[in-house]
Design a protein around this nucleic acid. Sequence first.
DNA 1: GCCGTTTTCGGCCCGACTGTTTTCAGTCG
Length: 588
Amino acid sequence: MERAQIVEILEEIAVLLELKGENAFKIRAYQSGARALESLENDLDALIEANELVKVSGIGKALAEKIATLRQTGELEFYDKLKESIPPGLLDMLDIPGFGPKKIRKIHDELGVETLDQLTEACKDGRIEALPGFGKKSVENLLRGIANREAYSRRHLWWNAAKVASPMLEQIRALPEVIRAEAAGSLRRGRETVGDLDFIVASDQPAPIMDWFCSQDGIEEVSAKGETKSSIRMQGGLQADLRVVPDSRFVFALHHFTGSKDHNVKMRQRALARGYSLSEWGLFDKDSERDATAPQWQRPLAVDGVQTEADLFNALELEWIVPELREGLDELELAEKGRLPELIEETHIRGSFHNHTNASDGNATLEEMAAAADALGWEYLGIADHSKASFQANGLDETRLLKQVEQIRELNASGKFKVHVFAGCEVDILKDGSLDLDADVINQLDYCVLSVHSSMTGNSEAAMTERFLKALDAPVTIPRMLGHLSGRLLLRREGYAIDTRRVVEEAARQQVMIELNANPHRLDMDWRHWRAAAEAGVLCVINPDAHNTNGFDYIRAGILSARKGWLTPDKVFNTRSLAEIKTVWNLS
DNA sequence: GCCGTTTTCGGCCCGACTGTTTTCAGTCG
């Protein structure tokens, strides 16, 4: 069984155990075990073989056995039995905000409610309201939650969430009572999808800020409004949380709500080991008495002068860890040694290689794309329109492609634009692993991007992997890049099953670059694979896959993913100057 | 179920807000 599937099963076990009312720490163990497996950088089969899975932090004897069984047999009796014991409708109920495992169990045990329909029924006929611990409000919230369950539980592309968050943050900062404000959460960490928005604000006058926040245009519902925290639900289902704290506590709150959960747990453990206790309200002496009647922000801090997150990390003898790296991997260990990488930044990018024109399915001309690249100050622009097999995308056959190459050469010679245009093509990898253009045609280009656009479903992992390996065996002599390796479309379509490790190894061996497709729907190859890939010697190329001149903006999303993948500028090809590239590509 | 510079048991990060209570459980992050 695929590793990603095993991760899903472990996560599902955690949910099922919750519904069973199991020990909360046992549930957490399954959740953190799932994350440990997900971010594992070694070869899973080798670890199982050597009995070394238990050495992975977060995976103990019981989980190691279950993971090995799933990997080798694809089945797990423990999981099957657990699943059988819980009506599937109860899992759906977890998507209802404010309705958790304990309440679900209660209505199940007391009323025999097993499905969302039965739950609606029980709300309407008064049986829920009659239960102890439930009331009128509960029923209202339940009915609204059921009606909007899908929209409320949906995650959102980072790109779309950022588009909502940026103007909101600007408006918050413009409020007179606000000293400073930041967006936190998975948005700040640059995750590919975002569950909700988190804003952290420093101010001594929270009330007017809360009032403004909860009365903005486009709000569907105010789900919480308190002294330090408010939550709103916006049209479309996106939730936004606002937290207002005194300026002296701002960085603690910002750090805490930036997360991730795993990173925070490690930070707190580190604090405890140094005699401190860390929370969103500050860094305190572990043994200091907490006056339960006084607000948290009045509790004296253990360390003075913590004004920035860097100060907070320093107080725990760590160098500053950028938000993108706070995923609870080994960032603390490296920060302790001062060995965190200098990550790539947007300003390092000098061009890109996977872009379309209206010759295939783009909607800007070659010249319009070149002009837009010029305006960005890029030194080079690679055009890689679709090849003929991508019929639906008006892919180019040999004749049209070679004509486009000529056009590009002429454009460069004309000196009309400052940007140098490289002639490429996004060549289809066909079902049998062959390329849909002859190698002697491809070899007339400056470079090519090899991508899968067809027969994506119904193939085994082995077959898909072979398909890529065979494509790499074609007698192509020009520089190559593998395009959007998994074929995933975030929140819409899973990537196909593929042995990424093997493809990465082969790409490294043949010096083939792998693309980080920066389209916010793709962000493919996934950031979780980049650290190992770069260590294996694979060069990354961050490509916007632009289909119009606005598409170049996607680079921003790609940079974030690259940073999450620990990539430094030297590991990313399109940080190089035009002169360097011409040299390594033997172009005059 | 995991983990260990107080190790094989007994901890496990910590606090805000809501709704239904009259002191707190449940949920969420």
